[in-house]
Write a protein that binds this DNA or RNA. Structure first.
Lengths: 298, 298
DNA sequence: CTAATGTCTTTTATCCAAAAAGAACAGAGC
DNA sequence: GCTCTGTTCTTTTTGGATAAAAGACATTAG
């Protein structure tokens, strides 16, 4: 059956919200709570029923009010706070870069389902998604062959990224001065400086910033296929560097500096300057990624 | 339960093979037949058992021999000669370009399953595949939104194709003279001339030739992501022009001519000439496709 | 009349079962 | 010794069941 992930996560979000309320203050209406929490009213009602049962909210005629402040122990916990799809994806990615998977080898879906403790259907879903990321391939006999996070894979992914990003850069420099992208770029530049200033503590935040930066560049030449490629990049970066912490701080510092040069290039209005800064950054990223792949399987 | 597509198709293939044999000639061994037909021995044995039952082959000690020549009526027929996945894909594609689907509208998986006469699982599979082709999008509430075969879609797809194909062309012209691609190009050129010479009867064969031509170009800059894009192109072309026969002969004639100029450009060794021929051809293809899309929904 | 709540229906996510197809192993024939 | 066949086990594909979540409709408070 379906997991109760949505319920549990929303329940906790709801407690957070209630914590900001005064005691005996009345709650918003169900539709407005549903909108606020981003779920259906059905879910909101289920949560309110539970909260009422545990005495956190109490019915006052037709409306409800906060009966007592939520405590730490009221929060729900457990394995299914994360959507099943995400969990399987994470487990599969870990398996893929681990020692049990060698590129070119056949993937046994049934076995993975047993390992991960989920049904074959969920694994199947995951496999078909990854096959469109280019990490797997379906062969004629219906089996999956692992292609793996190999040097080839990274090379092809970065080739694609370069081609598309160069194209976006050319458009970016030509944007009119009042285009909102310039504003967003300035905001991101701020964030870069802020991060550099407190790198010792916050270098882990780079990953997200990097993603948002490249997405902004790409947004001026909107293309769903390029969006897919960026999604794959993000996924790979997310997982790969989660398990590969070597030189993380230094790596991020260099990337931040390159981003700033890249931003300056975009601002200069000279395509050549922007492109060369872009090229430099993408080359570094590629080399870094390749290095960490060549080393890690050893 | 699983469809018997593999069995049925292979059964018919097997009859074709038997038709080429002498009466009372003995059949090859099971493993060799399995290899020849591209299926497992299990399937071959099931087929041999059926053939034996219907008196087409007879056991002669340990080996089997042809007892009577297969007749027209021996062939299996029915809806499941086509893999279920393909059938659903075709039905979905037809639905997508039909009047029941409007871009931006929500897709009802359950309803599609009922319409197509398959289970929700099969539809789900199909939907997730199409979402990676960029024709659908999954929204936060778990539902699918149709993006549709719109002008935007075609524009983005062709943008992507251009970027990648230009890149491949630059590499192609620089290939050494003894590279096998030149040989293949010559063979394809022959086919182009042959097709042009007999266009009246054979203009339907263009689609396949077109696919092979562009795949050859792409093959000199191998990239799985570009391969995916080409796959999407192929899919769209395949279905779209299956339902859109307007000016088909003329359209194909123009494309053939452009291909020949494109081939000459590649041979010239001058990147500019090759690129301009390439650009011209891709522009025509784009315009043709856009025209047929703008017209067809009316 | 508007917007909330109570109730009911529809759709989706997940698991499970059964049949088809593939793969592995053991014994038999040449 | 090698390859073929008979047999058994494993994996994949498809459909179906069930609970979660979403959505729709009717009713009622203000």
């Amino acid at each position: 059956m379906k997991t109760k992930t949505v319920y549990k996560r929303t329940y906790n979000q709801c407690l957070d919200f209630l914590a900001g309320l005064e005691l005996r203050q009345s709650l918003p209406s169900e539709p407005s709570m549903a909108a606020r929490l981003g779920v259906s009213r059905t879910t909101v009602r289920a949560i309110l029923a539970a909260l009422s049962h545990s005495g956190i909210v109490a019915a006052q005629g037709r409306s409800k009010l906060l009966a007592r402040a939520p405590l730490k122990g009221d929060y729900l916990s457990g394995g299914d706070l994360e959507p099943l799809t995400d969990r399987v994806e994470r487990q599969f990615m870990a398996w893929m870069v681990g020692p049990d998977c060698s590129p070119g080898h056949v993937v046994n879906g049934l076995d993975l389902a047993r390992q991960f403790g989920v049904s074959t259907s969920s694994v199947r879903d995951c496999l078909s998604r990854f096959s469109l990321f280019g990490l797997l391939e379906k062969q004629s006999n219906g089996r999956w062959r692992a292609l793996g996070l190999t040097v080839d894979f990274v090379a092809e992914l970065f080739d694609m990224r370069e081609v598309m990003e160069f194209r976006a850069v050319e458009r970016f420099v030509a944007l009119p001065a009042d285009h909102p992208a310039w504003h967003e770029l300035a905001a991101l530049e701020e964030e870069h400086h802020a991060l550099l200033g407190d790198l010792e503590r916050r270098f882990r935040d780079f990953s997200d910033l990097d993603h948002r930066f490249h997405r902004l560049i790409g947004s001026v030449a909107p293309n769903r296929f390029f969006g897919n490629i960026q999604g794959v990049m993000s996924l790979i970066f997310h997982y790969h560097y989660q398990w590969n912490k070597k030189d993380e701080r230094l790596r991020n510092e260099i990337a931040l500096t390159e981003h700033l040069a890249y931003i300056a290039g975009l601002r200069s209005g000279k395509p050549e300057q922007a492109l060369s800064a872009c090229r430099l950054h993408l080359e570094t990223a590629r080399t870094t990624m390749l290095d960490s792949i060549v080393v890690s399987p050893a």
